[in-house]
Design a protein around this nucleic acid. Structure first.
Lengths: 208, 208
DNA sequence: CAAAAAAGTTGAACTCGTTCATGTTTGTCG
DNA sequence: CGACAAACATGAACGAGTTCAACTTTTTTG
């Protein structure tokens, strides 16, 4: 049976996370104080720290939910990619990008990325890094899928290329969240300019 | 003539920077307090803030000196790259990597990178971003140089490829500084595994 | 059911980056 | 040289993340 204590704990954690999602989005990660979250969640400041190690932990928890969704949407593309190497890659990448601002602000992404670099040893950092790794694996899987379909030359190194493409899309995304004025449209066209030439290099002859 | 005031100012700034280089490397960016720097530089805490906007500014100033050196060493490779596409690219990249830990610790790199992502609008962030851009330009220049030499196919998009390669080497470097246990050797072989296959794709037929 | 143990909550106190009103030093002008 | 202005240095005070010793609540035990 679910003891009273357990229910209360789960409830408090949910309330804190809910407060975080709401306030981070509304006022920005930095403007929100732990005290604000505690107040909305109807717990004390100390209690927040019983559920999350640091303020950054709370952000990562929020961001991780979003990335899980992105991964799920990407899985659909990998299973049945559109025709054409460039089209398939961009379908996956645009899927990532379009999802990214659904629940999170650029400021939240910036802070989360900064955290993952600065504190790689914490549960925070490791969790975010793991999500990055899974995204890279998904890109690699797509390439393998395109090789199996005969659209990509079978002498390309799927691992190397998947990693390279992930690096490119990730770096582009960093530039996107760093510049508040940059539109999703500009992000899309930016990565397309890189993926296009690359796709041409790895296509099989027959697809030309 | 250099007035007394000017000399004193320059002197103080140098002392603060010197204290930062010494202490950041010895104890880590985070462990060092502004008060520690002030003490070593024989100024007050407030004075430190007269010369640098934030603690991060001081770090960026230190890191920027290092990156300028890296850019200078890279320029030599671009001017006269070794034979072979892969060899030339790796000569440039290894040059970057080997330089990177000469004066800076991994923790300093992590903090600097995190800063540039989190505070892109500050003088800090912009300066670091600008250095990144110049590194990407240098990679692009090398590719152009290899095209001119006939080693790289002249139908490849030098800009797109330069940016992609920069993203890859940068992402790899991020993984390197995130993992204190990762050796320079592992970093080198990691990027080589990505650059190798890519180089084969862009080489002219004759070089095969 | 009562008492002890376990688990969790609390908010005051601590740290450190940053700011600002005040004081001091340097340069300039009569 | 003396007095005024400008520039600069100073450190106490403030804000926000984090910690921890004391207190409450829930569970277990006899």
């Amino acid at each position: 049976m679910a003891g009273l204590r357990e229910r209360q704990k789960a409830d408090r954690e949910r309330r804190i996370l809910r407060a975080a999602v709401t306030q981070f989005r509304a006022d920005g990660y930095h403007s929100v104080r732990i005290e604000d979250l505690a107040e909305m969640a109807e717990v004390s400041v100390g209690t927040v720290y019983n559920y999350y190690r640091t303020k950054g932990d709370i952000l990562i928890a929020v961001v991780a939910m979003e990335v899980e969704e992105v991964l799920a949407s990407g899985a659909a593309v990998v299973t049945d990619p559109p025709d054409g190497v460039c089209e398939a890659l961009l379908a996956l990448i645009f899927g990532y990008y379009d999802h990214s601002l659904e629940y999170l602000s650029k400021e939240m992404w910036r802070s989360a990325m900064a955290l993952s670099i600065e504190a790689p040893g914490t549960p925070n950092g490791r969790r975010y890094t793991e999500l990055d790794r899974r995204l890279a694996v998904q890109v690699t899987d797509l390439i393998r899928s395109l090789i199996a379909r005969g659209e990509v030359r079978d002498d390309v190194d799927a691992n190397a290329l998947g990693q390279i493409i992930f690096s490119a899309l990730n770096q582009m995304f960093i530039e996107f969240v760093k510049d508040d004025a940059m539109t999703l449209e500009a992000l899309r066209s930016g990565i397309a300019k890189q993926i296009g030439p690359l796709a041409r290099l790895i296509e099989t002859e027959t697809t030309r």
